[in-house]
Simulated scan of single mutants.
Amino acid sequence: MSALPAEVPYRLTRRGVDVAQALDLSGAGRATAEAVLFLRECESQGLRVAWRAAGSPSYDLGVLRHLPPPLEMPGCESELAAWRAGYSYGSLHHRRGPGFVTVLDRRQRGTAVRLTLDHPGLLAAFLRLHEPAPLDAVDPEAVDLLVAERLVLAAGGWAVALPPRIRRWPVPCTAI
């Protein structure tokens, strides 16, 4: 198993990962980008995650429904219920090729969108945002396009790519 980001305190259990403190989903800055990165990497590795959310989101939580939902999210019970109902492993993921990235997005029930990022500026921004970055460190036009396609979360001056790179496929792999 690849190492998980160290910015979030966690412990591995027999059943997955337990996060020690509530993760900030407010969108107020770097902490939210780091939380999304951590959850994305857990999803990438097919790990079950027991975590709690903190903060009132300043963005549409629907962009995170491909990630494991929290155990609790104070003040956002209806959003949490929608998240739990809409979550499905692998509903958003990407695959890399030479000079391109293909993204499959099935977060919206009944739809499947396949996008290929092969424009050098978009591809560079997407790959740069695999790790959280300040917005001023990435081409703003590329970020705007990636945000519009719901492939990047940009909030509080920070941005991070949303689609995980799935490393653990269920059997059969065509189920995704």
Rank of each mutant, 00 (worst) to 15 (best):
M1H: 10
M1I: 04
L4Q: 12
P5D: 15
E7L: 10
E7A: 15
P9N: 06
R14H: 08
G16T: 06
V19Y: 09
V19K: 07
V19E: 08
D24P: 06
D24C: 04
L25Y: 02
G27R: 01
A28I: 00
G29P: 01
A31V: 02
A31C: 01
T32V: 10
T32C: 15
E34L: 15
V36Q: 03
F38C: 13
L39C: 05
L39N: 05
L39A: 02
R40D: 03
E41W: 03
E41Y: 02
C42G: 13
S44H: 01
Q45M: 11
A50K: 04
W51K: 06
W51N: 10
W51P: 05
R52C: 11
A53E: 07
A53P: 04
G55Q: 09
G55M: 02
G55V: 14
P57F: 04
D60N: 11
L64T: 07
L64C: 12
R65G: 13
P68L: 10
M73Q: 11
P74E: 15
A82F: 04
R84N: 14
G86A: 15
Y87P: 07
S88Y: 01
L92Q: 10
R96H: 08
G97C: 02
G97Y: 07
G99C: 01
F100Y: 15
V103N: 03
V103P: 04
V103Y: 01
R106C: 14
Q108M: 09
T111D: 05
A112Y: 00
L117W: 04
L117P: 07
L117M: 02
D118L: 10
D118A: 14
G121E: 15
G121P: 00
A124P: 00
A124M: 00
L127G: 00
R128L: 14
L129W: 01
P132L: 12
P132N: 14
P134L: 11
L135F: 03
D139C: 07
P140M: 13
E141S: 14
D144A: 15
L145E: 14
L146D: 15
V147P: 03
A148Q: 11
A148V: 00
R150E: 15
R150I: 00
L151G: 08
L153R: 03
G156Y: 06
G157N: 08
A161R: 04
L162R: 02
R167D: 06
R168G: 00
R168W: 07
P170Y: 06
P170I: 08
P170C: 09
P170F: 09
P172G: 06
I176W: 02
